[in-house]
Protein backbone atom coordinates (compact mmCIF):
# COMPACT_ATOMS: atom_id res chain seq x y z
CA UNK A 1 0.00 0.00 0.00
CA UNK A 2 1.26 3.45 -0.95
CA UNK A 3 2.47 5.67 1.90
CA UNK A 4 0.64 8.59 0.30
CA UNK A 5 -2.85 9.80 1.12
CA UNK A 6 -3.92 9.66 -2.53
CA UNK A 7 -4.55 6.09 -3.62
CA UNK A 8 -5.14 6.71 -7.32
CA UNK A 9 -2.24 4.89 -9.04
CA UNK A 10 -2.61 6.86 -12.27
CA UNK A 11 -2.40 10.18 -10.48
CA UNK A 12 0.46 9.05 -8.23
CA UNK A 13 2.53 8.24 -11.32
CA UNK A 14 2.00 11.65 -12.94
CA UNK A 15 4.41 14.56 -12.85
CA UNK A 16 2.88 17.46 -10.92
CA UNK A 17 4.02 21.09 -11.02
CA UNK A 18 4.41 22.29 -7.44
CA UNK A 19 5.99 25.74 -7.70
CA UNK A 20 7.55 28.20 -10.09
CA UNK A 21 11.25 27.49 -10.51
CA UNK A 22 12.30 30.75 -8.89
CA UNK A 23 10.62 29.70 -5.66
CA UNK A 24 13.16 26.89 -5.29
CA UNK A 25 16.11 28.65 -3.72
CA UNK A 26 19.39 27.30 -2.42
CA UNK A 27 19.50 27.74 1.36
CA UNK A 28 15.74 28.13 1.84
CA UNK A 29 13.10 25.45 2.28
CA UNK A 30 9.62 26.15 0.94
CA UNK A 31 6.54 24.05 1.39
CA UNK A 32 3.35 23.25 -0.43
CA UNK A 33 0.75 20.50 -0.47
CA UNK A 34 0.37 17.91 -3.20
CA UNK A 35 -2.41 15.32 -3.20
CA UNK A 36 -3.11 16.11 0.47
CA UNK A 37 0.45 15.44 1.61
CA UNK A 38 2.90 18.13 2.73
CA UNK A 39 5.83 18.55 0.36
CA UNK A 40 8.99 20.58 0.88
CA UNK A 41 11.42 21.79 -1.76
CA UNK A 42 14.67 23.62 -2.07
CA UNK A 43 17.55 23.94 -4.51
CA UNK A 44 20.80 22.11 -3.96
CA UNK A 45 24.23 23.68 -4.20
CA UNK A 46 24.55 22.15 -7.64
CA UNK A 47 21.50 24.10 -8.77
CA UNK A 48 19.01 21.26 -8.98
CA UNK A 49 15.67 21.37 -7.23
CA UNK A 50 15.15 18.82 -4.47
CA UNK A 51 11.68 17.74 -3.35
CA UNK A 52 10.60 15.52 -0.48
CA UNK A 53 7.61 14.81 1.72
CA UNK A 54 7.60 15.46 5.44
CA UNK A 55 5.20 14.76 8.30
CA UNK A 56 2.41 17.32 8.72
CA UNK A 57 2.86 19.88 11.50
CA UNK A 58 6.63 19.44 11.64
CA UNK A 59 9.46 21.61 10.38
CA UNK A 60 10.72 20.10 7.13
CA UNK A 61 14.40 19.23 6.98
CA UNK A 62 16.25 18.15 3.89
CA UNK A 63 16.68 14.37 4.09
CA UNK A 64 20.36 13.45 3.86
CA UNK A 65 19.66 10.22 2.02
CA UNK A 66 18.83 10.87 -1.65
CA UNK A 67 16.65 7.77 -1.52
CA UNK A 68 14.21 9.90 0.49
CA UNK A 69 13.99 12.54 -2.24
CA UNK A 70 11.12 12.47 -4.68
CA UNK A 71 11.58 12.36 -8.46
CA UNK A 72 12.14 15.87 -9.75
CA UNK A 73 12.14 17.77 -13.04
CA UNK A 74 12.56 21.43 -13.82
CA UNK A 75 10.55 22.22 -16.95
CA UNK A 76 8.81 25.24 -18.41
CA UNK A 77 9.78 27.39 -15.46
CA UNK A 78 8.35 25.10 -12.79
CA UNK A 79 9.48 22.40 -10.40
CA UNK A 80 7.71 19.10 -11.02
CA UNK A 81 7.60 16.04 -8.82
CA UNK A 82 5.80 12.73 -8.53
CA UNK A 83 4.69 10.35 -5.81
CA UNK A 84 5.01 7.29 -8.03
CA UNK A 85 6.96 6.12 -11.03
CA UNK A 86 6.60 8.97 -13.50
CA UNK A 87 7.39 8.80 -17.23
CA UNK A 88 10.98 9.71 -18.11
CA UNK A 89 10.01 13.19 -19.24
CA UNK A 90 7.10 15.59 -19.50
CA UNK A 91 4.99 16.28 -22.57
CA UNK A 92 6.79 18.54 -25.05
CA UNK A 93 6.13 22.27 -25.53
CA UNK A 94 8.68 22.98 -28.28
CA UNK A 95 7.76 26.67 -28.45
CA UNK A 96 9.19 27.16 -24.96
CA UNK A 97 12.68 26.78 -26.42
CA UNK A 98 12.25 29.19 -29.36
CA UNK A 99 14.73 31.99 -29.04
CA UNK A 100 12.49 34.91 -29.99
CA UNK A 101 9.86 34.11 -27.40
CA UNK A 102 9.34 35.38 -23.91
CA UNK A 103 8.55 32.81 -21.28
CA UNK A 104 6.69 34.29 -18.35
CA UNK A 105 5.30 32.82 -15.16
CA UNK A 106 2.01 34.72 -14.92
CA UNK A 107 0.98 33.56 -11.46
CA UNK A 108 0.07 30.67 -9.24
CA UNK A 109 -3.45 31.01 -7.88
CA UNK A 110 -5.24 28.92 -5.30
CA UNK A 111 -8.68 27.87 -6.52
CA UNK A 112 -11.32 26.00 -4.59
CA UNK A 113 -12.17 23.50 -7.30
CA UNK A 114 -11.00 20.10 -8.55
CA UNK A 115 -8.19 19.92 -11.09
CA UNK A 116 -10.36 18.44 -13.88
CA UNK A 117 -12.98 21.20 -13.51
CA UNK A 118 -10.18 23.76 -13.89
CA UNK A 119 -8.89 22.05 -17.04
CA UNK A 120 -12.36 21.77 -18.51
CA UNK A 121 -12.99 25.48 -17.99
CA UNK A 122 -9.70 26.21 -19.73
CA UNK A 123 -10.95 24.26 -22.77
CA UNK A 124 -14.28 26.03 -22.95
CA UNK A 125 -14.79 28.87 -25.43
CA UNK A 126 -18.51 29.27 -24.79
CA UNK A 127 -17.98 31.38 -21.67
CA UNK A 128 -15.71 34.00 -23.28
CA UNK A 129 -18.32 36.69 -24.05
CA UNK A 130 -20.03 36.35 -20.68
CA UNK A 131 -17.11 35.93 -18.31
CA UNK A 132 -14.32 37.74 -20.18
CA UNK A 133 -16.58 40.44 -21.59
CA UNK A 134 -14.84 42.84 -23.99
CA UNK A 135 -11.54 40.98 -23.66
CA UNK A 136 -11.83 37.39 -24.91
CA UNK A 137 -15.37 37.78 -26.22
CA UNK A 138 -18.31 40.12 -26.56
CA UNK A 139 -21.97 39.82 -27.31
CA UNK A 140 -23.41 39.28 -29.91
CA UNK A 141 -20.38 37.21 -31.07
CA UNK A 142 -21.28 34.27 -28.87
CA UNK A 143 -21.29 31.35 -31.29
CA UNK A 144 -18.75 28.59 -30.79
CA UNK A 145 -18.20 27.48 -34.36
CA UNK A 146 -17.66 23.82 -35.24
CA UNK A 147 -14.16 22.62 -34.35
CA UNK A 148 -12.29 19.31 -34.49
CA UNK A 149 -11.30 17.15 -31.57
CA UNK A 150 -9.11 14.10 -31.70
CA UNK A 151 -7.37 11.93 -29.19
CA UNK A 152 -3.86 11.36 -30.45
CA UNK A 153 -3.15 7.71 -29.63
CA UNK A 154 0.51 8.09 -30.40
CA UNK A 155 1.05 10.95 -27.99
CA UNK A 156 -1.80 10.10 -25.62
CA UNK A 157 -3.23 13.59 -25.66
CA UNK A 158 -6.39 15.41 -26.67
CA UNK A 159 -6.09 17.97 -29.44
CA UNK A 160 -8.83 20.43 -30.42
CA UNK A 161 -8.14 22.26 -33.66
CA UNK A 162 -9.74 24.76 -35.99
CA UNK A 163 -11.26 26.66 -33.09
CA UNK A 164 -12.13 30.24 -33.99
CA UNK A 165 -13.51 32.93 -31.79
CA UNK A 166 -14.04 36.66 -32.13
CA UNK A 167 -12.03 38.44 -29.47
CA UNK A 168 -12.09 42.17 -28.73
CA UNK A 169 -8.70 42.04 -26.96
CA UNK A 170 -7.02 38.69 -27.38
CA UNK A 171 -3.72 39.55 -25.68
CA UNK A 172 -1.87 42.35 -23.92
CA UNK A 173 -0.36 43.28 -27.31
CA UNK A 174 -3.71 43.44 -29.16
CA UNK A 175 -4.88 46.67 -30.72
CA UNK A 176 -8.46 45.72 -31.58
CA UNK A 177 -11.02 42.98 -32.12
CA UNK A 178 -10.20 40.05 -34.35
CA UNK A 179 -11.09 36.45 -35.14
CA UNK A 180 -8.58 34.38 -33.20
CA UNK A 181 -7.52 30.83 -34.04
CA UNK A 182 -7.11 28.46 -31.15
CA UNK A 183 -5.60 25.03 -30.73
CA UNK A 184 -5.96 23.23 -27.43
CA UNK A 185 -3.86 20.35 -26.19
CA UNK A 186 -4.52 18.27 -23.11
CA UNK A 187 -1.31 16.27 -22.81
CA UNK A 188 -1.72 15.44 -19.12
CA UNK A 189 -4.87 14.89 -17.04
CA UNK A 190 -4.24 18.09 -15.06
CA UNK A 191 -2.41 20.22 -17.65
CA UNK A 192 -3.50 22.00 -20.78
CA UNK A 193 -1.64 24.00 -23.40
CA UNK A 194 -3.42 26.52 -25.57
CA UNK A 195 -2.15 28.03 -28.80
CA UNK A 196 -3.74 31.22 -30.06
CA UNK A 197 -2.81 33.28 -33.08
CA UNK A 198 -0.29 35.91 -32.17
CA UNK A 199 -1.46 39.51 -32.57
CA UNK A 200 1.99 40.28 -34.00
CA UNK A 201 2.59 37.36 -36.40
CA UNK A 202 -0.42 35.59 -37.92
CA UNK A 203 1.59 32.56 -38.90
CA UNK A 204 2.65 31.79 -35.34
CA UNK A 205 0.98 31.18 -32.03
CA UNK A 206 1.21 32.53 -28.53
CA UNK A 207 1.22 29.69 -26.04
CA UNK A 208 -0.57 29.71 -22.69
CA UNK A 209 -0.28 26.70 -20.46
CA UNK A 210 -2.00 25.89 -17.22
CA UNK A 211 -0.41 23.31 -14.95
CA UNK A 212 -2.84 22.40 -12.22
CA UNK A 213 -1.43 21.12 -8.95
CA UNK A 214 -4.03 19.10 -7.03
CA UNK A 215 -3.77 20.16 -3.38
CA UNK A 216 -6.64 17.83 -2.63
CA UNK A 217 -9.63 16.61 -4.61
CA UNK A 218 -11.40 19.97 -4.42
CA UNK A 219 -8.56 22.49 -4.12
CA UNK A 220 -5.83 23.30 -6.60
CA UNK A 221 -2.95 25.60 -7.26
CA UNK A 222 -3.11 26.71 -10.89
CA UNK A 223 0.29 27.60 -12.36
CA UNK A 224 0.06 29.73 -15.49
CA UNK A 225 2.87 29.90 -18.00
CA UNK A 226 3.02 32.08 -21.09
CA UNK A 227 5.37 31.84 -24.02
CA UNK A 228 4.70 34.82 -26.23
CA UNK A 229 5.84 36.69 -29.28
CA UNK A 230 5.66 40.13 -27.78
CA UNK A 231 8.66 42.39 -27.90
CA UNK A 232 7.07 45.51 -26.51
CA UNK A 233 4.76 44.84 -23.58
CA UNK A 234 6.41 44.82 -20.19
CA UNK A 235 6.42 41.59 -18.21
CA UNK A 236 4.15 43.21 -15.64
CA UNK A 237 1.55 44.13 -18.25
CA UNK A 238 1.57 40.63 -19.74
CA UNK A 239 1.42 39.00 -16.34
CA UNK A 240 -1.41 41.21 -15.09
CA UNK A 241 -3.40 40.78 -18.31
CA UNK A 242 -3.36 37.03 -17.74
CA UNK A 243 -4.24 37.48 -14.07
CA UNK A 244 -7.22 39.64 -15.03
CA UNK A 245 -8.49 36.81 -17.21
CA UNK A 246 -7.93 34.17 -14.57
CA UNK A 247 -9.47 36.36 -11.86
CA UNK A 248 -12.65 36.41 -13.95
CA UNK A 249 -12.72 32.62 -14.24
CA UNK A 250 -12.13 32.05 -10.56
CA UNK A 251 -15.61 32.69 -9.11
CA UNK A 252 -17.14 30.69 -11.95
CA UNK A 253 -14.88 27.73 -11.18
CA UNK A 254 -15.50 27.98 -7.47
CA UNK A 255 -19.24 27.98 -7.92
CA UNK A 256 -19.38 24.80 -9.97
CA UNK A 257 -21.23 21.99 -8.32
CA UNK A 258 -20.24 19.29 -7.72
CA UNK A 259 -16.65 20.44 -7.38
CA UNK A 260 -15.36 17.12 -8.70
CA UNK A 261 -15.85 16.45 -12.38
CA UNK A 262 -18.61 13.91 -13.05
CA UNK A 263 -17.49 11.42 -15.69
CA UNK A 264 -20.83 9.73 -16.22
CA UNK A 265 -22.02 11.00 -19.62
CA UNK A 266 -25.53 11.40 -18.21
CA UNK A 267 -24.45 13.52 -15.25
CA UNK A 268 -24.32 16.85 -17.09
CA UNK A 269 -25.86 17.79 -20.42
CA UNK A 270 -23.28 18.89 -22.96
CA UNK A 271 -23.88 21.07 -26.00
CA UNK A 272 -22.01 20.98 -29.31
CA UNK A 273 -19.49 23.53 -28.03
CA UNK A 274 -18.48 21.05 -25.31
CA UNK A 275 -16.96 18.59 -27.77
CA UNK A 276 -13.50 18.91 -26.24
CA UNK A 277 -14.91 18.51 -22.72
CA UNK A 278 -16.69 15.32 -23.75
CA UNK A 279 -13.44 13.95 -25.18
CA UNK A 280 -11.62 14.98 -22.00
CA UNK A 281 -14.10 13.19 -19.75
CA UNK A 282 -13.92 10.05 -21.88
CA UNK A 283 -10.13 10.17 -21.86
CA UNK A 284 -10.08 10.46 -18.05
CA UNK A 285 -12.49 7.52 -17.80
CA UNK A 286 -10.33 5.45 -20.11
CA UNK A 287 -7.28 6.22 -18.02
CA UNK A 288 -9.15 5.10 -14.92
CA UNK A 289 -8.61 8.39 -13.07
CA UNK A 290 -10.56 8.59 -9.82
CA UNK A 291 -8.94 11.58 -8.10
CA UNK A 292 -10.85 14.87 -8.47
CA UNK A 293 -13.64 13.22 -10.43
CA UNK A 294 -16.86 11.37 -9.78
CA UNK A 295 -16.23 8.18 -11.77
CA UNK A 296 -18.95 6.86 -14.03
CA UNK A 297 -20.90 3.98 -12.54
CA UNK A 298 -19.41 0.72 -13.79
Amino acid sequence: MSRFTCKDPVVLDLWHAIASADEAVDGAISTTVLLEDPVAFTRSETGDPVVWTYPARTEPELPADPADHLPVLERYGYVWTSFGTPPPDLFPIPEYGEKDRRNIHAATFGVNVSAPRAIENFLDMGHFPYVHTDILGAEPHTEVREYEVEISEERDEIVATNCKFFQPMAAAASSGGTDVDYIYRVPHPYCSVLYKSSPLDESRFDVIAVFVQPVDQEHVRAHMMLTLLDETSEDTAIRLFQQTIFGQDKPILENQYPKRLPLDPRAETPIRADKSAIAYRRWLTKKGITYGVIPAAA
Partner: peptide
Protein backbone atom coordinates in the same frame (compact mmCIF):
# COMPACT_ATOMS: atom_id res chain seq x y z
CA UNK B 1 0.57 52.39 -13.07
CA UNK B 2 0.39 48.61 -12.83
CA UNK B 3 2.30 47.13 -9.93
CA UNK B 4 3.28 43.47 -10.00
CA UNK B 5 1.79 42.82 -6.56
CA UNK B 6 1.74 39.08 -7.14
CA UNK B 7 3.83 37.09 -7.71
CA UNK B 8 6.40 39.88 -8.17
CA UNK B 9 5.81 41.41 -4.70
CA UNK B 10 6.88 44.75 -6.17
Amino acid sequence: ELVDFYPGNR
